[in-house]
């Protein structure tokens, strides 16, 4: 388990323009700079928000990453729910899903 390294990858990506350029130009090379499991590397390579959420990436780090990827708000929420369905509950951290996947806004229900 290298959640620390996974989160550090995203922390650096979220705040460093140079890392963002490298993400787009040399993602495999950027990933290789961190000690990640195959599952973690795959989640980054695929931009798999659901799997990253289940792996325990802090929600604030993940939210900024989703914004960087240009993911719309309600899609971001859906990706996390789908991650739970596919991979089970959040494995670490304090950003667990507690509402059973329900929506808490009329705006999401009305889209």
């Amino acid at each position: 388990m290298s959640l620390y390294q996974l989160q550090k990858f995203l922390y650096v990506l979220n705040r460093e323009p140079a890392a963002q350029r490298r993400y787009r130009d040399d993602l495999d090379g950027l990933i290789a700079d961190y000690e990640l499991t195959d599952e973690e590397a795959r989640a980054l390579r695929d931009g798999d928000i659901g799997l990253l959420y289940v792996l325990g990436v802090n929600g604030q780090i993940l939210m900024h990453y989703a914004a960087f990827l240009g993911i719309a708000w309600f899609d971001y929420l859906d990706f996390m729910r789908e991650g739970i369905e596919r991979h089970g509950p959040v494995r670490a951290g304090v950003y667990a899903m507690t509402g059973g996947g329900a929506s808490f806004t009329e705006e999401e229900g009305a889209r």
Binding site: G59, L77, Y95, M97
Partner: peptide, 11 residues
């Protein structure tokens, strides 16, 4: 609040 989770909006 439960920000940045699927529970976003829960208050």
């Amino acid at each position: 609040h439960w920000p940045a989770t699927p529970d976003s909006g829960k208050i």
